[in-house]
Nucleic acid binder design. Structure first.
Lengths: 161, 161
DNA sequence: TTGGAAAGTCAATAATGCTGACTTATATTG
DNA sequence: CAATATAAGTCAGCATTATTGACTTTCCAA
């Protein structure tokens, strides 16, 4: 036996009730909706959508990323990503260079113009995150990160810093 | 002046750096993808998608909810929701009853069959959340909730318990 | 030199969202 | 009571993002 009473044990596990889990599910839904709303708003003025934002974000964060790595991160099909990427390359927001080690690969990077749009979108999103972090405090943020890391598929962690 | 040195102040605010915010943004993206993947997998075997899941979830959680309240929660247009809802009513997963107070309103509830599908989807999603909560512990979960509540649009909090 | 990997493309289809215009039923207000 | 407003539902058209399947080009590596 442990030093805990049955009552104490039960109390310790209250955060695992179905009701608490359902509330967490709803929090994920509402938070994600808010999380995407600011960039989406900006993108109203463009011919681009959320998929373009995601591509810009991960190219910015991973300079010279290959197409196949980007495919793995985004979890969409080659055809789906290609449509988005083609637009961005044609519009000169993204540069696609033949790989040096392996000439079959393409290394993606943002052009000046791409960096500018990415920055606008990112700034809007970071503003909301910054306010939320600030209001919640560092310990809450640590908990936030821990739970999200446990929700995501483990093999995707290699794409985090 | 506070009792903190400048170095201590700087350290306290490290969780607000752009890099930390960007990592949080990526965590949201990866976690949300995992969060939706299990129900999406189940829905492969149906003619329903994520939008149907969301409707089933919130009708289950808010018995006798009206269409306009559901519209507010989901944040989509009447036409968009109606397509989904019509299917669910025709297929007898959802019951739409004329309101008692106000006969213009419709009160939505799940049929037996609707409850069964909702349960399957919910169980898959709760399983992942439960594992994440358990691994992270109650304090982390509290932080997770606090941050998500600060990310979401404040007026949506009325739809949480 | 052959087999496979990386990238790109074409075509068809599906799910989910939007705007705009309109109807029906019912409640509320002047 | 008559006028107005609200709740729901519908039709049509279109955009975005995703899918599967089939195929080509280029190039690395065994």
């Amino acid at each position: 036996m442990t030093r805990h009473s049955n009552a104490a044990k039960a109390e310790n596990l209250l955060f695992l009730t179905d009701d608490q889990l359902l509330q967490g599910i709803e929090l994920m839904f509402f938070a994600y909706k808010g999380f995407t709303s600011d960039p989406d708003q900006i993108l109203q003025n463009y011919t681009y959508g959320r998929a373009h934002h995601r591509a810009l974000h991960f190219i910015q964060r991973n300079p010279d990323i290959t197409v196949s790595t980007l495919l793995d991160i985004l979890g969409v099909t080659k055809q789906s990503l290609n449509r988005v990427l083609r637009q961005l390359v044609i519009d000169k927001l993204v540069d696609s260079k033949i790989g040096k080690r392996d000439r079959r690969e393409r290394n993606l990077q943002l052009t000046q113009e791409g960096q500018e749009l990415e920055r606008r979108l990112s700034e809007a999103q970071r503003k909301r995150m910054r306010a939320a972090y600030k209001a919640a405090g560092p310990d809450a943020v640590q908990g936030f990160r821990t739970v999200l890391q446990n929700i995501m598929d483990p093999q995707m962690k290699i794409h985090l810093d």
